[in-house]
């Protein structure tokens, strides 16, 4: 098991997702001799998991059964231990496409937070890309680095424990894309720019508040970014339901014998398959601001001329 490569069978040390039922899951670390308590009873790792195929049904001690699933970044996002607010799959999907991530991309990210987005980025840029992720909270940075190793993606990522607004990403001129999820992204735009390749690239900032967006857009424009565009994306879930709709009974054509007729009204009804919206849904996560860094001309050009002149003098 790895977060960037499927395997068929469950092995010692793997992360697996126990699927207990509709929207109910839990992540486990598979260990020889270990046991996991679920509401359907105990799962014994050595006997029930190790050597089994991912996706199989496992019968727990109380007779109930669960499925054991191969981890994916999407399942991880739903199951990870929250150390911060995290990004969810709907936003992540758009971030990934709009940042044009693909195998081989070099990406800078800050903050790492709980690593929800990081895992999705790593999945997409493997096996030849690299993620430089910056988190100024020491424990979070350490925990994330540990998780990356456990999930066998450690070789694809560098975690830096520093303040991105002050010290930047720790790299210059290497990134194809930069992503920011910090309270004051506008303070990091300059660093984002210098982390990016000189032939340009894409940047995205996620902010819950419109005031943050406003400042970020100003900073982006100020730094010469182009195609600045802000969007908001939501996922609407349609819950499939079979519903029964009673049909009204308008009575027979001929008049009723007496006004007090006790005729039993027909209780005909129709069954339909339809969907209903959930009673509540996420109505706002944050605004996604994207921009393109154009290829640099001026700076390099001037430096060139500058050195040319120095040689002449």
């Amino acid at each position: 098991m790895s977060f960037v490569e499927y395997s068929e069978f469950i092995q010692e040390g793997d992360v697996a997702i126990i699927f207990l039922g509709h929207d109910s899951m839990m992540p486990i670390k598979v260990q020889q001799g270990a046991q996991t308590q679920t509401r359907y009873g105990v799962i014994r790792h050595s006997k029930d998991l190790i050597g089994q195929r991912f996706g199989t049904k496992v019968t727990c001690s109380k007779g109930g059964w669960v499925y054991v699933l191969h981890p994916t970044p999407e399942l991880w996002t739903l199951n990870l231990p929250h150390r911060t607010q995290i990004l969810y799959t709907t936003d992540i999907a758009n971030i990934t496409m709009m940042l044009e991530l693909k195998p081989g991309s070099v990406v800078c990210e800050s903050g790492t937070g709980s690593g929800s987005l990081s895992h999705a980025i790593l999945r997409t840029i493997a096996p030849t890309g690299h993620l430089h992720t910056v988190e100024f909270h020491q424990q979070r940075a350490e925990k994330a680095a540990e998780e990356f190793r456990e999930h066998r993606v450690g070789h694809l990522v560098t975690v830096r424990n520093q303040d991105v607004c002050k010290e930047g990403f720790g790299v210059t001129g290497v990134a194809d894309a930069v992503f920011l999820d910090i309270p004051s992204p506008w303070e990091a735009i300059q660093h984002a720019k210098s982390a990016m390749k000189k032939q340009g690239g894409r940047v995205c900032s996620f902010s819950p508040c419109i005031e943050q967006v406003q400042k970020t857009c100003e900073a982006l424009a100020g730094q010469g970014f182009e195609e600045i565009s802000t969007v908001e994306v939501l996922l609407r879930v349609h819950e499939v339901r079979s519903i029964t709709l009673p049909l009204p009974d308008f009575g027979p054509d001929k008049p009723l014998e007496t006004p007090t007729d006790t005729r039993i009204p027909s209780n005909a009804s129709v069954l339909c398959k339809t969907t209903t919206p959930p009673r509540e849904m996420a109505g706002h996560t944050g605004y996604l601001t994207f921009a393109t860094k154009p290829r640099i001309h001026c700076l390099f050009y001037l430096q060139f001329v500058y050195f040319g002149l120095i040689m002449w003098i």
Partner: peptide, 18 residues
Amino acid sequence: AVSLRLTDSWIRHYQVLP
């Protein structure tokens, strides 16, 4: 199959100017 979900995505673009 598990985790079946029927969804659609909603997207709104913003004009951001001072």
